[in-house]
Simulated scan of single mutants.
Amino acid sequence: MHSRRSTSWALRAPAHWIVWSIVLFAVTIALGFVAKAIPAVRFDGLDAAVNGVNSPLLDAAALLLDRLDHPVVVAGILAVVFVILLFAVGWRRALGTCIVAGAGWLTTLVVKAAVAQPRPSTRDLTHVLDISPATLSYPSGHVVFAAALVTAMAMVSRAGLPRAIVVIVGTLFVLAVAWSRLYVGVHYGTDVVGGVLNGVAGAVLVAGLWNLVTQGRRRTR
């Protein structure tokens, strides 16, 4: 006899997920256009200030986190998350969590194309690392993935201490990724803020769609 945990498809998305998705994406894109039009809003110089406090250890950490949005790395992280959640919440919700994190991350391609913010120059950096970003600046795709992953994990976590741990550890992870993008000098301050907004928006949207698509399966069971 299957337990409720192992047969459940649903993730804990907000009740009004469509509204939340629209609002969050609207704020994300609006912030991008405002920052593009008004340089002062971009927190110019924040990357140089963060980069100014450097060390070999910080270099290693930033370069390690720089790999975070490579497709192979993302696939590896999601595979590990799936295996862990497989034993905790069952394969259905584990699969849903990975789809929410991965597809939520991919929504950044739409926001990047819409805003089309060029990368900041590295000429003001005192400590230049060998980083060659290939995509547009706003929002940070690394931060989008981190925020989408943490949001998805929070949606599948049990209420109480487990979810609190996920939120606290996840917040530290997102902050570390945001720091790393400023440290290597390839993003403005608004890029990492927009990355958090985009990541949460993408996760909420995909989670709502996941629940909608799997609703019929839940009823038949």
Rank of each mutant, 00 (worst) to 15 (best):
Y188I: 04
A178P: 01
G185A: 11
L161I: 14
A146P: 03
M155Y: 12
D124M: 11
W179M: 04
L182K: 05
P162C: 08
T151S: 14
L136V: 03
A134H: 13
R181P: 10
G141S: 09
F173E: 00
Y183K: 03
T151A: 13
Q117F: 09
D191Y: 09
L136A: 12
R158T: 13
L175M: 14
L125D: 01
A148C: 09
H142G: 05
Q117D: 12
G189I: 01
H142M: 11
L109N: 15
H127F: 08
S121C: 00
V184I: 14
G160A: 07
V174F: 03
I168L: 15
G160W: 09
A147H: 07
L136P: 03
R181H: 05
V115L: 06
L109Y: 13
L109P: 08
P139E: 00
Y183R: 04
A152Y: 05
L106R: 15
T171R: 01
A152M: 13
T122D: 12
R163D: 02
V167Q: 11
H142V: 02
A152C: 13
S157G: 03
V150D: 05
S180L: 00
S121P: 08
V115I: 10
P118R: 02
D191P: 00
Y183N: 03
L125Q: 00
V169N: 02
A178D: 01
V169R: 05
T190K: 06
K112P: 05
P120Q: 05
V110Q: 10
Q117A: 13
V166Q: 03
A176E: 08
